[in-house]
Design a binder for these strands. Structure first.
Lengths: 234, 234
DNA sequence: CCAAAAGTGTTTGCGGTACACCCATGA
DNA sequence: TCATGGGTGTACCGCAAACACTTTTGG
């Protein structure tokens, strides 16, 4: 096929946008925290009844990121604290009819999550990332890849803040890292690493618990180590 | 908008696939090597006459990666030694009519390049990455992002091998790194780093030049540090 | 023998890990 | 006062940078 022929073979394709939305949940019994994500039960023919990622068709005059935000609002009623494109999936056989899916992944803050989960819509449920049901289409592959990206990115950027409220203790921040990475971190070393990174601003307030109060920190907006895509390239 | 309405709003979109193809070129005069990429002169209305990334419309029954390979073959007549999805660009205003572009980036080997550049097609030319002309659409942003990804990835994966022949000296490999990173590297430290990485297999052959012969190495296929996307996630 | 590139050895400093230790608070 | 988590000090290890040095070839 020559370039000219390719240029004229202008066949429209159905384009969908889906989003892998990550949040945190404290397990009531133990002191552990785990990564959770919302899934939508399908009410239509391909894979009807199975759980799938929240998503929808790309609007005619809708930017990709806007479509992802819409998805997020429809299932969590929240504004994302972090939103980044994950990958474009377009294999011919990934759906009975050809669909190209632009997939985003997002973080929602823990303090806001509880409110939205109470007023949950029908057919939406939150699952622990390590205990997922069978998913529709290739969505299991997509979630696994998003989890890989989350775990990777937490190591070289500061996205963990996207899962916390404005003010937080170092222990709470460490909890986020431990939940994402799935392993315990040394509190002493964690403190120094994150202090030296210059991304935290200590406040004068303290979280008073059952023991010695812990200083509250805020995220330093000036520092933006996260790389979300070509749009941020200066 | 509810999910149900979104699900029924099934409006097809025009989907294109473009590829940023990177190669290397030795500058005849100096001993420097630089990154080069092929561009195609547009012969059609939007941005006619300007240079643009090689690409075309996604075929109805064509996987995304296959479409990218086709693009690559049409402009270089080569099989890519490395091919990875870069990003999906879909802003409404990036083209007069709405187009979602799935962009890939690729590496072609230096030893194969010369042959294809001689039999170059009309309207295709290779440019030094640091001296690009004005590009059509948002292709300048795309190329800059691909360059950022290339420079980033060379630091934590072994994609530099994708720009060399099967057998190469450490100096040749170092040249690739220096061309991509744009700075000189210490030969001694470079040797140790790459030797300790376990990605190289020494051969018994030597490259005999004007001075002491240098050992030739091969790339260890077993080690695959590169991460090309969700398809490689086990 | 000389120039130049291949290849080796050694020192230094930095960042991460392990772990001992002190501090402040509620009960 | 004790238990518990907050917070500090310190020794160690591995890696990478800097750079002096030896080796091997062509001319």
């Amino acid at each position: 096929m020559t370039r000219t022929e390719a240029e004229s073979a202008d066949t429209p394709t159905r384009v969908a946008v889906s989003t892998v939305i990550f949040g945190l949940r404290h397990l009531p019994g133990s002191d552990a925290t785990c990564v959770v994500l919302p899934l939508v039960r399908r009410t239509r023919d391909p894979h009807e009844g199975q759980w799938a990622l929240p998503g929808g068709w790309l609007g005619e005059r809708e930017n990709l990121e806007v479509a992802a935000s819409r998805t997020l609002a429809e299932t969590t009623a929240l504004a994302p604290s972090y939103l980044e494109q994950l990958y474009a999936f377009g294999d011919v056989d990934r759906s009975p009819t050809r669909v190209v899916s632009i997939v985003y992944w997002a973080l929602v803050r823990e303090d806001e999550m509880s409110s939205s989960q109470e007023g949950a819509q029908e057919n939406v449920a939150w699952f622990t990332a390590t205990e997922l049901p069978e998913l529709a289409f290739d969505h299991r592959l997509i979630v696994d890849y998003a989890l890989w990206r989350l775990r990777n990115k937490v190591g070289y950027s500061r996205i963990a803040h996207g899962l916390l409220a404005d003010e937080f203790t170092l222990a709470e921040l460490r909890e986020v890292y431990e939940a994402i990475l799935g392993r315990r971190l040394d509190p002493a070393n964690f403190r120094r690493q994150v202090e030296n990174s210059g991304t935290l601003i200590p406040t004068d307030r303290f979280r008073t618990g059952s023991h010695r109060p812990a200083r509250l920190y805020r995220y330093n907006q000036d520092v933006e180590l996260a790389e979300r895509g070509p749009l941020e390239v200066r």
